[in-house]
Amino acid sequence: VLKALERTRQLDIPDEKTMPVLMKLLEEAGGNWSYIKLDNYTALVDAIYSVED
Rank of each mutant, 00 (worst) to 15 (best):
K3R: 12
R9F: 05
V1A: 07
R7V: 13
V45P: 00
D12A: 11
V51A: 14
L44A: 00
K17W: 09
I48S: 01
N40C: 07
K17H: 08
Q10D: 10
A29C: 14
E16M: 07
I48W: 02
V21E: 02
V21C: 06
E28G: 08
A43H: 10
Y35I: 12
D15Y: 04
E52F: 12
V21R: 01
D46H: 12
M23P: 00
E6T: 08
Y35A: 13
A4V: 05
Y41K: 00
N40L: 06
E6C: 10
K37T: 14
L5P: 03
L2Y: 11
T18P: 01
T8L: 09
E6W: 06
W33F: 06
K3P: 03
P20Y: 11
L44D: 00
Y35N: 10
R9I: 05
L25T: 01
V51N: 12
E6G: 04
D53K: 12
V45W: 04
K17L: 11
Y41A: 02
A47E: 06
E6D: 08
R7A: 12
M23N: 09
V21N: 02
S50F: 10
D46I: 11
D46R: 13
Y41D: 01
K17P: 02
D15S: 03
L26P: 00
R7I: 14
E28A: 13
V21Q: 04
D46F: 09
L2S: 13
E6H: 08
D15P: 03
G31L: 06
Q10G: 11
D15C: 05
S34M: 14
K3H: 12
S50L: 13
Y35H: 12
A43V: 11
L5K: 03
A29G: 07
K17C: 11
V1R: 03
K3F: 06
P14S: 06
Y49R: 14
D15R: 01
T18G: 05
K3T: 08
P20A: 08
Y41I: 05
W33S: 00
V51S: 15
E28P: 00
E52C: 09
A4Q: 02
M19E: 01
I13V: 06
P20K: 12
L44T: 00
I48Q: 00
Y35W: 14
Y35P: 08
I36V: 08
A4M: 02
L22R: 00
D12T: 06
L44E: 00
A47Q: 05
E16T: 09
K24N: 07
T18F: 03
K37Q: 15
W33G: 01
V1S: 03
P14N: 03
D15G: 02
A29Q: 14
L2C: 13
S50M: 11
N40Q: 06
Q10A: 14
A43M: 15
L22T: 01
K24W: 08
I48P: 00
E52M: 14
L11I: 04
K24E: 05
D15M: 03
L22Q: 01
V1Y: 11
M19Q: 02
A29P: 02
Y49C: 11
L5W: 02
K24P: 01
G31R: 04
T8Q: 03
G30W: 06
L44P: 00
K37D: 08
K3L: 13
M19T: 05
D46M: 15
N32T: 07
D46N: 14
T8W: 07
V51C: 09
D46L: 15
K3Y: 08
R9D: 05
V21A: 08
L5C: 09
L26V: 04
S34D: 15
K24Q: 11
E16H: 13
P14F: 04
T42C: 08
K24F: 07
A43N: 09
G31C: 09
R9S: 05
I36P: 01
D12G: 15
A29R: 08
L44I: 04
L25M: 14
I36E: 02
R9C: 08
Y41V: 02
N40W: 06
E16A: 09
E16R: 05
W33K: 00
E27Y: 11
S34K: 11
L25V: 03
L26K: 01
V51Y: 14
V51M: 14
E28F: 07
E27K: 13
Y49M: 14
V51L: 15
L22P: 00
R7L: 07
A29F: 15
A29K: 08
E28R: 10
A43W: 07
Y35C: 08
M23Y: 09
L44S: 02
L5A: 02
V51K: 13
T42I: 13
Q10P: 03
Y35K: 11
A47Y: 06
L11G: 04
E52R: 11
E52K: 12
K3N: 10
V21F: 06
G31H: 09
Y41L: 04
V51F: 11
A43C: 07
K24A: 10
S50N: 13
S50W: 08
V45D: 00
L5N: 01
Q10W: 08
N40D: 10
L38I: 09
V45S: 01
L26T: 01
L25C: 04
Y49T: 10
V1F: 13
R9M: 04
T42S: 15
T42R: 15
L44W: 03
M23G: 04
R9Y: 04
L11R: 01
Q10V: 06
I13R: 02
L26R: 00
P14C: 07
I48F: 03
L5T: 04
M23L: 14
L26F: 05
K24M: 10
I48V: 08
L26G: 01
T8Y: 05
Q10N: 09
K24R: 14
S34T: 15
L22V: 03
E52Y: 15
L11N: 06
E6K: 08
E27D: 12
L11C: 09
Q10K: 10
Y49I: 11
K37R: 13
S34Y: 15
T42W: 12
S34R: 09
L2V: 11
M19W: 11
K24H: 08
K17V: 15
T8I: 07
I13P: 01
N32K: 08
L38M: 14
D12L: 11
E27F: 10
S34V: 10
W33V: 01
K3A: 15
N32M: 06
N32F: 06
I13E: 03
M19Y: 10
D39I: 02
I36M: 04
D39R: 08
A47I: 05
V51D: 12
E52P: 12
T42V: 11
V21G: 00
I48E: 03
D53P: 12
L2K: 12
I13K: 01
L25G: 01
Q10T: 08
V45Y: 02
K17S: 07
D39M: 08
L38Y: 10
T42H: 13
D15E: 03
S34C: 11
R9W: 06
W33E: 02
M19A: 03
L11F: 08
Y41P: 00
K3S: 13
T42F: 13
P20S: 12
L11H: 07
I48N: 02
Q10H: 09
L22Y: 00
A47G: 05
Y49H: 11
K37E: 15
I36A: 01
D39L: 07
E28T: 08
V45R: 04
S50K: 15
E6Q: 09
A43Q: 10
D53S: 12
S34A: 15
S34Q: 14
L2N: 11
G30A: 10
A43D: 03
W33N: 00
V21L: 05
R9N: 05
S50V: 10
R9H: 04
V1K: 04
G30R: 11
I13A: 01
A43I: 10
P20M: 13
M19H: 05
S50A: 14
D39V: 05
